[in-house]
Design a protein around this nucleic acid. Structure first.
Lengths: 103, 103
DNA sequence: CTCGCATATCCGGATAATCGAATATGCTAA
DNA sequence: TTAGCATATTCGATTATCCGGATATGCGAG
């Protein structure tokens, strides 16, 4: 199952980057065009477009042209469920570390 | 929330690698010591230990010494839930691609 | 067609991840 | 103590990832 695991890892890899995580949560609120993401995340357009390309290549997001704008939206809403689980685990870990330090 | 997102991404990053995914699924079956993983995954011991270190640093796995062996186990079982969601999404994507090709 | 905005790609350079052999450390038993 | 197995770390080399400025492409308005 090497190959399947590689594909699995590729998908995980695609969401394992701070800017891309922010993009996914933003798109979960509502579909956006590129410049909305640029403004919202205060990140250069070049950088946003590069990350969007990575998400597109993994089919995590979908695009729809509307005039000169390109709207992005989540292809699979349950990617947010997976991210939320990871977030809650991280929260548990941080809390546990904090408790250890403070006796 | 840049910092929180970075931590979130670090955790995601730690699970986004084929060998580490295989290790996590193996540990989900049962706790193992290092050489069991080496045999099971047919991967050099150096490589396994390096990946285990990364998982340890993120508190994803826990260790317990027993004599000269070190047993590893999952620190948070729900990491498997997150991985399963990602796997099911990947499966959907692959199926969709397949359907497109075969009309 | 041309202009201008929206978006995508190209480029070079910096940083980080991966590998496995070699080597070090830790523990047990004799 | 020493021998030997289990595990961890160091090393150098390779490969991947990231950044953002510069630039290219796509589309609508005029």
């Amino acid at each position: 199952m090497r190959e399947a695991t590689d594909l699995h890892a590729n998908l995980c890899q695609a969401i394992a980057e701070p800017t891309r995580i922010s993009i996914l949560y933003a798109l979960n609120e509502k579909p956006c065009h590129v410049n909305e993401l640029v403004d919202q995340l205060k990140t250069p357009q070049t950088t946003i477009s590069r990350h969007l390309k990575i998400l597109r290549e993994q089919s995590i997001v979908e695009t729809q042209r509307e005039g000169s704008f390109v709207f992005y939206s989540l292809g699979y809403q349950r990617i947010i469920q997976a991210l939320d689980i990871m977030k809650s685990i991280k929260l548990d870990i941080v809390r546990k570390e904090h408790d250890l330090i403070h006796k």
